[in-house]
Amino acid sequence: MSRITESFNNLKSQGRKALIPYVTAGDPEPKVTVPLMHALVESGADIIELGVPFSDPMADGPVIQLACERALLHGTRLIDVLDMVAEFRQTNQTTPVVLMGYLNPIEVMGYAAFADKAKAVGLDGVLTVDLPPEEAHEFNRLMKASDIDVIYLLAPTTEPARVEKICAAGSGYVYYVSVKGVTGSASLDVAEVAEKLNIIRQHTDMPVGVGFGIRDDASARAISEVADGVIVGSVLVNKVAELAGNQALIPEAVAAITASMRQAMDK
């Protein structure tokens, strides 16, 4: 059983939902990332989504675009992000880590080399925004062979038949994008999300995480009532940006946001 599946199973038996924070690796500087990951875990994060910086993040809003730019300024490459996972694993062997990013850095490294390295550093999952299952046969085969979960997105526009196809290709959990738009854009409609999750659950037994548009305790709590996991990104990355000039404060300040969300979700 993968670390991700185990994590969701444990939460389920406790009647709790997963809190899944997203931060961009290397933002604003590489040395911040691993301490930030540990602080997130201490604040109650169950799974960490670590963004791989990319020059052209087409599905992201301005907040994460700027995070990518800051990280790239210090030359944070995919290989460096994998090394950060290895460093994190030195003291944490239980919290799943999922890389989230775009295909080209993996394409250039080579699928096989990426799969080997990902396994070696103790990565648990990978979510590639611009790699839909139709184009992912070889990728999926290699990730599966390395015991890495491949996490796919579902959108409000995804037809039921396609939900089934996507869930069959993925493992670990599926990521439901709650709004039409880029990351950090509109606020979400919980009733609409709940309705869509009902449809999704007719097609899969996998846990469903919901992201895009979760920005405070209230929305985190509302989503935790209908989803298996609450994914929060832009609001955390915004805090990182605010403190870019005072980096020592970043782990504590970001973790304060997730700690508060954790409390709201567990009430």
Binding site: D56, P105, D130
Partner: peptide, 21 residues
């Protein structure tokens, strides 16, 4: 330039060793 993926298609793409365009 090696094959890469940008703007929805795989093609010959100018990107660096780390896959940045």
């Amino acid at each position: 330039s090696r094959p890469g993926v940008l703007h929805g298609n795989r093609t010959s793409l100018m990107s660096d060793e780390g896959g940045q365009v």
